[in-house]
Design a protein around this nucleic acid. Sequence first.
DNA 1: ACCTGAACACCGTTCAAGT
DNA 2: ACCTGAACACCGTTCAAGT
Lengths: 228, 228
Amino acid sequence: MTVPARRRSTRDRPAKAPLSEQAVVDAALAILKSEGLEAVTMRRVATALDTGPGSLYVYVSGRDELLQAMQERVTATIELEKPNPKRWRAQLHALLGRMLDALIAHPGLASVSMADPPTSAATSAALENLLGLLFAGGVAPQDAAWAADIFAALVTFNAIEADTRRVDITEHAEEIARYFAALPPERYPLITANVGALVAGDPRRRFRFAVDVVLDGILARSKDGRPD
Amino acid sequence: MTVPARRRSTRDRPAKAPLSEQAVVDAALAILKSEGLEAVTMRRVATALDTGPGSLYVYVSGRDELLQAMQERVTATIELEKPNPKRWRAQLHALLGRMLDALIAHPGLASVSMADPPTSAATSAALENLLGLLFAGGVAPQDAAWAADIFAALVTFNAIEADTRRVDITEHAEEIARYFAALPPERYPLITANVGALVAGDPRRRFRFAVDVVLDGILARSKDGRPD
DNA sequence: ACCTGAACACCGTTCAAGT
DNA sequence: ACCTGAACACCGTTCAAGT
């Protein structure tokens, strides 16, 4: 005598209360923070919400849109500050630092933000603030527009770098130092002679340096009154 | 009367001549160029080599290593030039341009190169050349080391940008322009007032600008003799 | 040693069946 | 309208069976 076959209906239990895009994005962000980007699968998110993968498609057109929505939500949490011409440079450093922090706190999101178009409310708000700070510093519009692009590159690149060396920051630097030091000096004289400089500086320091270099370059340009 | 069951042995045909890592990477690069990164699956590569997916694991430890090997191979094709102090700046622009071209010619590889560690022969050769050019320009070692990082960010970021707008370059810019122009001016006064500047310049122009800005910033720093 | 192809444990997405 | 879960067409990787 066998147990009567189940599987006759498409459901085993009554339907739950409707979900929402909010709930889906929240669940996905929680998984991202605790387990990383790879763990953010439709099935995993659905399980976290105690439902089937198909249910998510009511709120999100697919995985890519979900990732974009996550990025938008994280970008929206970045604090913006009214530009003050007296301390615009410090404000700019602080803003870019917060952008970097937000991405680092959500490992993997930087790679997403790199692929997405910059057309969203939160991204626009950050861009508006960035332009405001550069204008407060007397940077010409065209220079400011292109500088914003460079800063985006620096933030994203540094966030992705942080994602990779997640495990152990100093161990990672030492590994690279060992690799460089072991290269044949005849073929790589400059690398082997400058291992110290190549791995010097913690990520924060290097990021600040990069931002300063770009700002100095932009300001020099404006001062000269160069034709673009 | 039925056809006698096949599937009794693990093979239907005699074994082929051995493959090689070369052959695997070549096949993968061909697929990358014609169909993009997503199409580079172990199964797809195996099919192109007329074998099963399991065969690839003799030459490559997995998909990630295959992608790294592809990046290494492409990086190795970048032409390097002996630094000449008389025209180091033009040489630097040319080198970075070739790096960008190589990545753009292999859509998707830029995202791979971003995640990988910079420890490979080809990457080291490019870094060695980059350092040589900066030294030829009189840049101090620590500045040169950190500048190399910034240039890597610019090249990778611009290559990924190029990947995204692959389809139609001007159409993409127009789409972004439309989005910016449609934003509410009260909330985004600077964006809406500067749409032209924000989307101005073809990608090449923007890239050259970024490289010049970084160089100017670095050179200003060296001149001042700043303690960084 | 290395090719072969089935098998395992996953994916994203679609869709008929329910409520 | 939206939840449910099976089904489809894929993945990367492993491995016993062959040569």
